[in-house]
Write a protein that binds this DNA or RNA. Sequence first.
RNA 1: GGAGAGGUAUCGAAGUGGUCAUAACGAGGCGGUCUUGAAAACCGUUUGCCUUCACGGGCACAUGGGUUCGAAUCCCAUCCUCUCCGCCA
Length: 428
Amino acid sequence: MLDMKFLRENPDIVKQNIKNKFQDEKLPMVDEVIALDEKRRTIQQEADDLRNRKNILSKQIGGLMKEGKKEEAEKVKAEVAADAARLAELEAQEGPVADEIQKIMYVIPNIIDPSVPIGKDDSENVEVTKYGEPVVPDFEIPYHTEIMERFDGIDLDAAGRVAGNGFYYLMGDIARLHSAVISYARDFMIDRGFTYCVPPFMIRSNVVTGVMSFAEMDAMMYKIEGEDLFLIGTSEHSMIGKFIDQLIEEDKLPQTLTSYSPCFRKEKGAHGIEERGVYRIHQFEKQEMIVVCKPEESPMWFDKLWQNTVDLFRSMDIPVRTLECCSGDLADLKVKSFDVEAWSPRQKKYFEVGSCSNLGDAQARRLRIRVNAKDGKYFAHTLNNTVVAPPRMLIAFLENNLCADGSVKIPEVLRPYMGGTERLIPKH
RNA sequence: GGAGAGGUAUCGAAGUGGUCAUAACGAGGCGGUCUUGAAAACCGUUUGCCUUCACGGGCACAUGGGUUCGAAUCCCAUCCUCUCCGCCA
């Protein structure tokens, strides 16, 4: 959400930004909201004047009553009553106009970073850097569920019976590998100075609307029936929500946290053939990192965050690349975003395993996350990034560590979390 | 789920219909006096948001309504926190 004052003073920047994001249908909203804002201020001016008059007269009445001048007091009362109708009329307009303004402001996209490449959709995202050699072995790599089945590591049929499509039972070595990856990722981030946190897995609607746009909310969030609670789609939601309505002392910044949580997503929309198995599911677990910092430090933290994910994957010998989201593919709240993608030797292409975002002050403005500094208060900047989401990580992991004999080698860093196991041997 | 207490500035907290909300009082922050320096003590200062070129004005005492000329204060609804009891991993 933009600052109304900024929009009022820089309508051309806001409009150009909308064009850069190929959302031309939103262009008229800028002038519309400016007109509404002007209307709001006119109403406020007149209403404030009337309120001022009422306040002065009410004080007079108090004085007159004390002195026992009842008749005079009645006269002044009549004066107040004369303005009451007009004031009520103005007050009736104030709310709806303010609501309308907020509705539009929620939809106008955040100003993107100047470094963001201009493009209309994900086909125009830009590869930034590759890390590691994308190897294609000379034997065939099966689909990830097939690899898992060789280890008796997955039961999708049972999951279907119990919860439906989009859920899984992980079993045995594969389930253990899943937990090992989470534990390793947690310690990896703790070693880098982040504070480990296990947050609430449900959040209230006021937090939901603070951390994401309505469009995202509708497509992602599961609502608990009869309660004002939603299952989190990522722990980013409860982690950024942790700071709602808080005034943070400046010397307590930056807040660097790494959190574990299950994630629940409706995943509305078309699913492709590559999304079978555990690629896109309604429930998965994830280690996340978030940062709340001073505005001038958010670009620096952005680079540190995605680098963490790259380093984590490289420590397990998985080739990755960073892909920058172009303007049209960038969510409305975001200033800049990189996807981290892992190499799939089966598909012979990279696929998304994490997403790193700088939200600027958009979430902070919606959630009123302010910083108390010596020379005044300001909105913090917020960032978030996936450390690792095991289901997708497992796909990359199994494909990249599968050997010609069907076994899967466990990289050294994971062995302490796997009881020292060096290699998984298929059951059949 | 039941009973009780409570929600006021950065924090603690007073305030039960008007000239104690320009929010008492205390703490913290900032500036100063004193000191070789620091601590202590003392003096001063310090809410946020909207609006205005400015002067000024308005709003905010959990949230939303209501009563009243006037509400932190009275009434109604909702939310949250704490304590005790119940239930429970």
